[in-house]
């Protein structure tokens, strides 16, 4: 798999000066990319552009050498998992809302049994008790770990992680890296965390 940003310009407010100017990046299987930069520099925007939630003002984004037109975009989205910083799975107990993403046709074959979910939670330092809690009552950090657990269990070829280590202690960080980084998939991550950035194969700085 290959993702290419080529001379991408983008601004939310078309009158203001662009957030991204002539941004280019080529990513292939096995890359662990760290995107750093101050908040508001457009780190998360890169994910939104790649996922097709926003469209570049100029320049192109390619997935496997084809432009991200609607059909190609659908193919890409079937290969991706995205862990936002503030995960929202909806109202209900975690045990009820957790499986919803696994009911999608693209993910059904990956649907884990409860044992596997709980052992993944343990590896990420999530207590077993969260399973029966209202999802909306979990802390932001706990919700993000739930997102990381989903990403791990979905086992996709492309992972987009928003500040994956911001809510974790060092031991959990190590576990996440070991769980997610298999040397084959593409991982794009935004991060402020020197520990995480040190372990990325490439660092992109946005200003």
């Amino acid at each position: 798999m290959e993702i290419t940003f080529s001379n991408v310009d983008f601004a939310y407010d078309k009158a203001a000066k662009p957030l991204l100017k002539k941004f280019s990046l080529k990513v292939k299987d096995g890359d662990l990319i760290g995107i750093k930069g101050p908040s508001g520099a457009g780190k998360t925007t890169l994910f939104r552009l790649l996922l097709g939630f926003e469209i570049p003002d100029s320049g192109t984004i390619l997935f496997n050498d084809k432009p991200l037109e609607p059909f190609q975009l659908q193919l890409l989205r079937k290969e991706t998992t995205w862990v936002p910083q503030d995960l929202d799975l909806g109202e209900g107990k975690l045990s009820e809302v957790f499986y919803f993403p696994f009911t999608f046709a693209a993910n059904r074959s990956k649907s884990p049994d409860e044992m596997k979910v709980l052992s993944t939670f343990e590896a990420l330092g999530l207590p077993k008790s969260v399973w029966q809690e209202e999802f909306t009552n979990l802390s932001t950090g706990q919700r993000q770990r739930v997102g990381l657990a989903i990403a791990y269990l979905m086992d996709k070829n492309i992972m987009l992680l928003d500040e994956p280590t911001s809510a974790l202690d060092e031991a959990s960080k190590e576990k996440i890296r070991n769980l997610l980084f298999d040397g084959k998939r593409i991982i794009l991550s935004t991060s402020h965390d020197p520990w995480w950035l040190d372990r990325c194969s490439k660092i992109i700085e946005l200003k």
């Binding site: 996922l51 290969e79 998992t81 995205w82 999608f104 693209a106």
Partner: peptide
């Protein structure tokens, strides 16, 4: 963002 999370995860 909930809707987008689902879309971004292959729905």
């Amino acid at each position: 963002e909930r809707y987008r999370f689902f879309i971004a995860n292959g729905s």
